[in-house]
Design a protein around this nucleic acid. Structure first.
Lengths: 337, 337
DNA sequence: GTTATTAATGCAAACGTTTGTGCAATTTTA
DNA sequence: TAAAATTGCACAAACGTTTGCATTAATAAC
């Protein structure tokens, strides 16, 4: 089966390549192609199952209808979740997405960006991993639009949509306080990342406002399971053993649970826990975990929307959006009186 | 920043486009390009940060170094897990992958395949969703190589790599029997899919061999959480209430757990459970779930390997691989005496 | 019966590569 | 010193599209 092309259809129908192209792009009227021609060509295209070469099309029009999506790690349910949304939203609007992960490594991130540029993607939606936005900023300014999700930069013009992590940090902490906890530890993720910073800030502010400045305890280095595990080990064996732990991601939570289990302690009865991120299986844990849920659906959908606006010419709008999180109350926090 | 191209470099260095191309492709020796030229050109290419247009390259060479990966649903951890492997393995060998899901819908699957063909992917790795392999077979025969993973077809030449699901079905059932269970229900997924069929066959065979033909109980219609929930509801309220349930996927398990929780029953003490698929969080469920784990790493890696072999010319090898599953023993099965 | 108008289509360049072939200039051979 | 061989590079076609402009034939205008 030889690949069909405008040329092969042209030969078989007798019409010129340009006419075929115009008909197949719905430009028949504009160019006053006769009804007869339109019918003949359409029929033949359908018959031979013609699919245009998007390579050639992209080369000629400088538009590929493709978006790049860069996340930190596909295997993290939070990111696979958001990828899911982005991919479907993009498809909805006629775009295909190329998914890549940076493994939270700046060098890989650059490689990935370059690879996407080589492929002439029309735009990039990314969870950035570094501390320096300049590389992405330059791309955004000189090449193609970039929209950030989850992580973002404060002093950068790069548009983003993320969760109001500060508010999320506050909500969790206030929830603990309302139930009598005041020895609350916070296990954070990658410290310079905006989500971690903001969640921590929310936690700290609430503690301070409650006059518990001396009880503030923050540790952690990244969003890995291992980090959650190690930090919890330390916490449980320290003198200032907390009565509550605020884990800043679902991965940290899993690690923390492992450490808690190993200590023979029971979540809620012995130590209370609130986590960040939502996930079905959290309802099936023992006990079900109270958590701060991010609006991933809205984040993904908005990111695509913003991207499409950029692509339609409204460049550099510098949109910055923070969506409110939601507290999902389950059964991992005790009442202390 | 004007996009750089062979032309722009050509103009600036004074060398012809072909010379630039050959130098940048490492063909300098083969074409006896002078040292001086090689150095000049390489330097300039680096200086202006040249990245070749993969569109043009693909158009010219009919090779895009891109693979299509079609799965059923990105949001399912089993699939995101396997996607992860495939994406990284492909990258390892210089390939980019375009990820798409069919939402387990034959119509969408066709659309997705066509879209990938339009993009001139070099090959497709897919979890197929229909019962009729003919569409994919035709592609495999006439256009580009296809490698199936997870699901496959018995009477088809399409190569595949999957788990030995039959063996997995046997292992779970034998495990139950060895602990005194004989009223074992099996909640299956999409009935015509090979994984479900084979797991069920393993279950049935062991039951028959144990003389428990009359106790065989199979139900279920797909791999959804809802299916697991509804079927378990029915089971728990039927007269022939089982003492053990074999859920054929992680999703079915979650649904089953919900139903069990709602009945006020406790897994293990009141009803034993073994599931298919592995996942970190299963260790944190209450209780941790004994399960049949699929070797997703190996499946993904082999799928890419087979694909690469195909692409290197060894077409139509019709490789068919079933890898052994592994029983991960946790604490969701009681002993009955 | 010319000339202007319109309808229907074709030509050819361009997008950025790769690659077979050609062709001077230089060096080697005898 | 003429012929042969080698060195170093350029030309141009091709991949499959899109699109501004040109062209032809038919119809309308006068």
């Amino acid at each position: 089966m030889k690949k069909e092309s405008l040329v092969s259809i042209s030969k078989r129908t007798g019409y010129s390549i340009s006419t075929i192209s115009r008909v197949l792009n719905g430009q028949a009227e504009k160019y006053r192609i006769s009804k007869k021609a339109v019918e003949l060509i359409s029929a033949e295209a359908k018959r031979c199952n013609y699919t245009p070469s998007l390579l050639a099309k992209g080369l000629r029009t400088r538009k590929t209808n493709t978006l790049g999506l860069i996340i930190l790690n596909i295997d993290n349910p939070y990111f696979s979740n958001i990828s899911n949304i982005v991919i479907h939203q993009a498809k909805e609007h006629g775009y295909t997405v190329i998914l890549a992960d940076s493994l939270e490594n700046e060098h890989d991130e650059r490689d990935v960006v370059r690879s996407l540029l080589s492929r002439q993607v029309d735009g990039i939606i990314a969870v950035p991993c570094g501390q320096d936005p300049s590389f992405l900023e330059e791309i955004n300014k000189n090449s193609i639009p970039i929209v950030l999700i989850d992580r973002y930069y404060q002093n950068s013009g790069l548009p983003f949509v993320s969760t109001n992590n500060y508010q999320g940090g506050r909500m969790a902490t206030e929830y603990f306080l309302a139930r009598g906890h005041y020895k609350i530890a916070c296990i954070c993720g990658t410290p310079y990342s905006m989500p971690s910073k903001e969640r921590v800030r929310g936690y700290s502010d609430v503690m301070k406002e409650a006059g518990l400045e001396s009880e503030i305890f923050i540790s952690g280095e990244d969003f890995s399971i291992m980090n959650g595990y190690l930090e919890t080990k330390l916490l449980l064996n320290s003198k200032k053993k907390p009565t509550a732990i605020f884990t800043l991601s679902n991965t940290i939570l899993l690690g923390a649970m492992k450490a808690i289990n190993e200590s023979g302690l029971k979540i809620k009865d012995d130590i209370s826990v609130i986590s960040f991120d939502n996930n079905t299986y959290l309802d099936y844990l023992n006990p079900p975990i109270t958590r701060i849920s991010q609006p991933t659906d809205e984040i993904g959908t908005l990111a695509v929307k913003i991207m499409l606006q950029s692509l339609e010419g409204n460049r550099d709008m510098g949109t910055r959006i923070l969506l409110p999180p939601e507290l999902i109350e389950r059964d991992s926090v005790s009442r202390i009186f």
